[in-house]
Amino acid sequence: MERAEEELHIARAKRDPNAFAPLYELHFAAIFRFIHRRAGDRELSADLTQQTFLKAMLALPRYEPKGYPFKAFLFRVALNELKMHWRKRKEVVIDMSYAEVRGLTEEMGLPEGDDGLRKLEVALGRLDEDRARLIELRYMDGMSFAELGQVLGIAEDAAKMRTHRVLATLRTYLSPRA
């Protein structure tokens, strides 16, 4: 679906909630996968995805595209839903595969093998929520800096700079002196 067509659907859905269906059909799988990567459970992911679309529908009258794709707005709502879901928990465990962290281990110059990965697990766990979110979006979801900026509502350059700062923090956590 092209941007102009998508904006037409958004304008229609603002007037008539039943016209939201094409947007729902188009983005459902992407949002489901995005949530599933964090929640890990299918049933829970389905509930949170449904809740994400409901919140998006309710917020639609106030939504302005501002040149960003609608999907970026949905990702933002989904992150908020996950945060709401996790707020009463003491600890959240996020599973990542070797493939997902390969880019990160290369960037950090970590040696291959379990030892390096265990260190990375600990270092990631020391990051605050905003910084951890940035790393997840970049390496777990494989987003470009432009996409990252769209989801976080910042410019591409700012997203790049923030990511480099977080990587620098991670390096200090991984250094032998830390």
Partner: peptide, 16 residues
């Protein structure tokens, strides 16, 4: 809320 990361060969349960 603490975030803990678990890195394994396959990661989480397979993506649907």
């Amino acid at each position: 809320m603490n975030r803990r990361y678990r890195i394994s060969p396959e990661g989480r349960q397979p993506e649907p």
